[in-house]
Amino acid sequence: MHESADEHAIERILGKNEEMADHNREHFKSLGACAFNLMSAPGAGKTSLLETTFKIAGGKFSSCVIEGDMVGDLDADRIKKVGVPVHQISTGRSCHLDAQMVARLLHAEPLEKADAIFIENVGNLVCPAEFPLGEHRRIVLLSVTEGDDKPIKYPVIFRNCDLVIFTKCDLLEHVDFNISEAIRHIEAINPAVKTMQISAKTGYGVEQWAAWLVSEISEFKQHLKSDKHVHHTAH
């Protein structure tokens, strides 16, 4: 004898990842750190951007880095050399970080107290868009050697981010990358997004990026304070 049951309740397929991301977000908050998820295609310059940021603006806020790579710790070594604490996640065969991997790291290794935690995702414009990690801000890097049509080809990642940074802008005169066209494409998908132009090699735009970070970190800390205030008055 068989009966059958229809289980109609709607459930988000990646709900577990989202719950875990919320957990990580709270963890970062408890450290007083604003977490930034850096996403881009492979080779767009995420690590170079971080190196230059720490060299030029390292004194403006304290940082800690979580490096996500499929294999090896080459990027982590580069970050270590500029004197910033770094934690490595090797994803093995996975093409993106997920919240569970970050949570495992948080339970295994205590993170340094820092104003900013930079999570460098695996280089990929597709999969990382689907897996929030617990970040407070999402940043996408698009190098000018990739082409200004990339926002049309990868709309999901460009829709779900707070800032797009055009990297390798020192090469602009050598490539057919139309910045205003790229910005137009991005704004059609994500009207609230900010954009910035940077060259990690020459330092062009790094001050503006550092100023953005300082302002986001201070806004984040302001929220933390008002959260605590609400918490205290509630009791």
């Binding site: 049951a5 229809d6 289980e7 109609h8 709607i10 459930e11 988000r12 397929i13």
Partner: peptide, 8 residues
């Protein structure tokens, strides 16, 4: 990106 129904 949802599961909407499971028949068991």
């Amino acid at each position: 990106l949802d599961v909407v129904n499971v028949v068991i």
